[in-house]
């Protein structure tokens, strides 16, 4: 079959870029959302005074932080069928990002919880509140403010990390870049556009994180 080689980018390719962009956003938002949910539990466990909770949580976090994301992707991708789950690659991608994000987010959650001073606990307990109530009404709302700048940082990291999902051939933005480069051999242009699109997603977020951090410092 003759290979059709394009010698320039056209409008159909623009659609492909947008598709990749959309898929990247979907991967990241869902991955971050689910990952944060898990992270709330893991983070709480890590901050707990009970060894049997904080230790396994710590192990989970360390292993994920000290192993390459690429390996995590392969592990999740090949583990899922072993568990009997025949899922589309999108799910494998989301699952990987979810697990990865949960570890880093758990540390952010832990730091946030521990940033709330002891005296807040003492005051709330003194008023007769139980542990869950202290968490819900006193600690978490304050911890939340502290978690936002690093949380935005995590999102930026996740957007960049999602490029790895291209390895399992999911049609996110980097994969689009690979496909179009194979088709046109215009690597600089194609990956230039891909890089620019990632930049457009990430740069405003990093300015936002700086802004929020500054606002938080002033507010006290």
């Amino acid at each position: 079959m003759p290979q059709y080689v394009q010698d320039s980018l056209n409008l159909y390719d623009a659609v492909l870029f947008l598709q990749g962009l959309g898929n990247t956003v979907a991967l990241c938002l869902i991955g971050l959302g689910l990952g944060t949910l898990i992270a709330l539990f893991v983070g709480l466990a890590r901050a707990s005074h009970f060894r049997w909770l904080s230790w396994p949580a710590g192990l989970y976090i360390e292993v994920i932080r000290d192993s390459p994301l690429l390996m995590q992707l392969y592990l999740v991708f090949f583990a899922l069928p072993l568990l009997g789950l025949d899922v589309p690659i999108f799910v494998a991608g989301v699952a990987t990002l979810m697990v990865n994000a949960s570890a880093f987010m758990a540390e952010i959650v832990r730091a946030g919880i521990q940033s709330v001073g002891r005296d807040q606990w003492d005051a709330a307990r003194g008023l007769g509140m139980g542990y869950p109530q202290v968490m819900r009404w006193v600690v978490m709302p304050q911890a939340f403010r502290v978690m936002i700048p690093p949380g935005v940082g995590l999102l930026i990291g996740l957007i960049k990390d999602s490029s790895i999902i291209s390895v399992i051939s999911y049609l996110e933005l980097t994969r689009v870049g690979q496909i179009l480069t194979e088709k046109t051999f215009l690597s600089f242009q194609v990956f230039g556009i891909v890089a620019a699109l990632y930049f457009i997603m990430c740069y405003p977020l990093s300015r936002l994180a700086l802004y929020v951090e500054r606002r938080l410092k002033v507010g006290g």
Binding site: I156, I159, S163, I164, V194, Y198, F199, C202, Y203, S206
Partner: peptide, 8 residues
């Protein structure tokens, strides 16, 4: 810092 290593 705002683009992925893989793309680079």
């Amino acid at each position: 810092r705002n683009t992925p290593l893989l793309v680079q």
